[in-house]
Design a protein around this nucleic acid. Structure first.
Lengths: 124, 124
DNA sequence: CAGGATCCTAATCGATACTG
DNA sequence: CAGTATCGATTAGGATCCTG
């Protein structure tokens, strides 16, 4: 990080609009956050229990990103041990059906894989 | 890659089913491949033009993954310069509405961002 | 409890060169 | 044309320690 290299970099970012929008769900845990938040507001610690394999560092990063994008809202509660509650915004709610659809297909593909024992390529 | 490290790794993968299904769209280009394939079958080179910023190496990797999962089909055409045609399977087609929904919300969030000049946190 | 800081691993990707 | 191989750069992610 820092070397100019010899790469031109004259072209900023052609990037199709699709890719830009899909960054909404970038990272392995974004969909999970939205998913578990779809059941109602949850606190930081609760989300960590919902998604056991996520580290605090990454969960924080994802929550910040989603907040900045307007997908979730963050509210600091004035409780004695300070707690923070996260919830989906209206636009965030609209993401839920999309995720649900992907999960549906994903589960059907898993079933499908059961019936076809690794056909791979060149099934001789 | 190769060092055993001292990490236990005794637990295989608790992983919520959601995460497993979302790996369908893992990687930056998977959604793009499905998206551009939704307009009909396309050849390798055509996809590279559709998605300019993807390298041949990565495009190949994504196509192979999606094929293995049963989302797309690969057909080698017996033409003089050999060509390969990719197309969505029936299950792959079902992914299109989901991606479309995400893009919809993504575009609305972008509009929303226009109206709210970086509220950030502590808009003091 | 919520999350910032540091360090390090692993996955993803792009560029380039080469092959059937 | 449709890849494959290798290399370097970027990035997501995990673990641990520490703070308001």
């Amino acid at each position: 990080m820092g070397l100019p290299l010899r790469r031109s970099k004259v072209e900023p970012p052609p990037v199709c609009p699709l890719t830009e929008c899909m960054t909404l769900l970038r990272g392995a845990w974004c969909p999970n956050v939205i998913w578990y938040l779809s059941g109602g507001p949850r606190r930081f610690g609760e989300l960590r229990v919902d998604i056991p394999r996520v580290s605090a560092r990454v969960l924080t990063a994802r929550l910040r990103e989603l907040e900045a994008k307007g997908v979730i809202a963050r509210e600091v509660l004035a409780t004695s041990p300070p707690s923070v509650e996260y919830s989906l915004t209206e636009l965030g709610e609209e993401l839920v059906p999309a995720i649900r659809a992907i999960v549906r297909v994903g589960m059907r593909l898993n079933e499908h894989a059961q019936h076809c024992p690794t056909p791979r390529r060149k099934a001789a």
